[in-house]
Nucleic acid binder design. Structure first.
Length: 518
RNA sequence: GGGGCGGUAGCUCAGUCGGUCAGAGCAGAGGACUCAUAAUCCUUGGGUCGUGGGUUCGAGCCCCACCCGCCCUACCA
């Protein structure tokens, strides 16, 4: 039986180019997806762009383009290319302007409309005549002035269609109660529960003051409110599987904590209304802080992923963000910290270990991996460490503790380095009578690296492939991607006789470079 | 105002059920070694665990108040 795993990122709002903040979510989803895939599960990883709504319309106008031209351009030149920059491989990329989406959104809501779960009502809110748009109560200046024109706003109402969200409070609370991991981490769950307990208001799902959106099928004067359209992407894309087996419900929706409420409250309520299964989990990760400030697309603090990958490479990029930051909490990014982690853990720790082991197999055994002829207590300890690393990582992945899953392997790398240093193979090599001992030491180090390559593959696919190649592992074991991660801790898989080659450095030491981010 | 989450060594952070919990990594200092990317390994950590009270035989860990930071407070995404 093959488990199935369906993971999503939010669909990104295309008002600007991607920053390391949005790429953070994508990289996390990609790692999880690769991990589950390497467990042999049937996986589906979806990302995409959210292209409707007033802000996009505004951004397009500001840039002298039609909204469709604007989103086409931004998606083609920024949002899709960034996937390659960070080495993410989604199975599908949905755009909310695609017909496959718009028609399904219409169908979904038409169904709710016909079953009496949409009603016509009055939306009332502060409206600025000069702006010709409704304002958010929270954005008004003191005294109820429009923040742009600094003049009083009017209370205006328009006829909209509503979704009776207020009727779902009890059902949602029951959902959170029965399924404690529906919203994670705990802090996010607490916040959502507290919010819903206050009671919910019905949700206006249509707009008639602008037309950049999906038209409401039973009343063409309206377009759907952008969230109502956007959330459905997870469901509409799932209907597209070629084999006709929709991967539903989603296993995990990864979201930033700012959009938690939409995913943990409105989204499941919509699905309940339609009689569609709700997702298994909504997981809210934290912010990337730069200089103690939340990074924002619109501010100068926005760092583009390519600025980082140009220097460190995509593997180090993925490693840094997923290992150095506790997934679920806010985390600080700084160029200095990233440099420190790169040098210490990747270049000096991992990369150097691969170099010294493959170099010694080359030097003492002409590159042919010897057999584990004299296996002793030190090797038993190493093998135990390997099994522990796998068990720790597997357990961490199930809790979405990505940082911990990676740390398990990083700790194992340190253990291997310690093993090699303590066994002193370079000294053992000088004693012709200790040949069997030397063989076991180098075999054990190489075999350990085999597991490291497998465990790091979901995080750092490029260098893991380099290591796999360097270990000559493909000949006997097959492709790296086919190695089952849950089986990686079984000792003795890399066969004696494998041809090891000391390849290029996995993580070359980098020259000091001024911080381009300043 | 209401709600959520944080405030632990120079830096980034762990601390599950209250009792070796005062920790890890990095940085710094000393030493060992030379296979390796001047890498590795070992040794080295007196910081009022935001402040003030309280509960307890005993509290970063529970309770109260206060200070500081971030987020949410609904139709921006």
């Amino acid at each position: 039986m093959s488990e199935s795993f369906y993971i999503t990122t939010p669909i990104y709002y295309v008002t600007a180019a991607p920053s390391i903040g949005s790429a953070y979510t994508t990289v996390a989803a990609d790692m999880l997806n690769r991990w589950h895939r390497q467990r042999g599960e049937q996986t589906f990883f979806l990302t995409g762009t959210d292209e409707h709504g007033q802000k996009v319309l505004q951004a397009a106008e500001d840039n002298g383009a039609s909204p469709q031209e604007w989103t086409d351009r931004l998606v083609a030149t920024e949002w899709q290319p960034v996937l390659e920059v960070i080495d993410a491989q989604p199975d599908d990329f949905i755009r909310t302007t695609q017909e496959r989406h718009t028609t399904r959104v219409q169908k979904f809501w038409q169904g709710l409309f016909e079953s009496g779960q949409v009603y016509e009502g009055q939306y009332e809110g502060p409206y600025c005549v000069a702006c010709e748009e409704f304002k958010l109560p929270s954005e008004l200046l003191e005294g109820g002035l429009c923040p742009i024109h600094e003049r009083p706003v009017e209370q205006l109402s328009e006829t909209n269609y509503f979704f009776p969200l207020s009727q779902y409070a009890e059902k949602l609370l029951a959902l959170y109660e029965e399924n404690p991991t529906f919203v994670q981490p705990e802090s996010a769950r607490n916040e959502v529960i507290a919010f819903v307990k206050q009671g919910l208001e019905d949700l206006s799902i249509s707009r008639s003051t602008f037309d950049w959106g999906i038209s409401v099928p039973w009343d063409e004067r309206h377009v759907f409110y952008v969230w109502i359209d956007a959330l459905l992407n997870y469901w509409t894309a799932a209907q597209d599987r070629a084999d006709g087996r929709a991967p539903w419900p989603a296993s995990v929706h990864l979201v930033g904590k700012d959009i938690l409420r939409f995913h943990a409250v409105i989204w499941p309520a919509m699905l309940m209304a339609a009689g569609v299964a709700v997702p298994h989990q909504v997981f809210a990760h934290g912010w990337l802080l730069v200089g103690g400030q939340k990074m924002s697309k619109s501010k100068a603090t926005a760092i583009r992923p390519s600025q980082v990958t140009d220097h460190f490479g995509s593997d180090a990029y993925r490693y840094y963000f997923l290992r150095a930051i506790n997934f679920g909490s806010d985390g600080s990014f700084s160029w200095e910290h990233m440099s420190a982690v790169y040098t210490s853990e990747l270049a000096n720790g991992y990369g150097n270990l691969a170099s010294r082991v493959t170099a010694m197999v080359g030097k003492y055994f002409d590159g042919v991996l010897p057999a584990d002829e004299d296996h002793g207590p030190a090797e038993d300890a190493l093998a135990a460490g390997m099994a522990t690393a796998v068990a720790r990582a597997e357990a961490a992945i199930d809790r979405l503790a990505l940082h911990e899953a990676i740390s398990a392997t990083t700790d194992f790398v340190a253990l291997i380095n310690g093993y090699v240093t303590e066994q002193e193979p370079w000294k053992v090599a000088k004693d012709e009578s200790a040949r069997a001992r030397l063989a076991s030491i180098l075999y054990s180090a190489a075999e350990s690296l085999r597991a490291v390559a497998v465990l790091y593959n979901p995080v750092m696919p490029k260098t893991s492939a380099m290591l796999w190649e360097s270990l000559g592992a493909a000949v006997a074991l097959g492709e790296l991607g086919e190695q089952r991660v849950q089986d990686a801790g079984r000792w003795g898989q890399l066969p004696a006789g494998s041809h090891l080659v000391k390849g290029a450095s996995l993580f070359p030491r980098l020259l000091e470079e001024p911080d381009p981010v300043d």
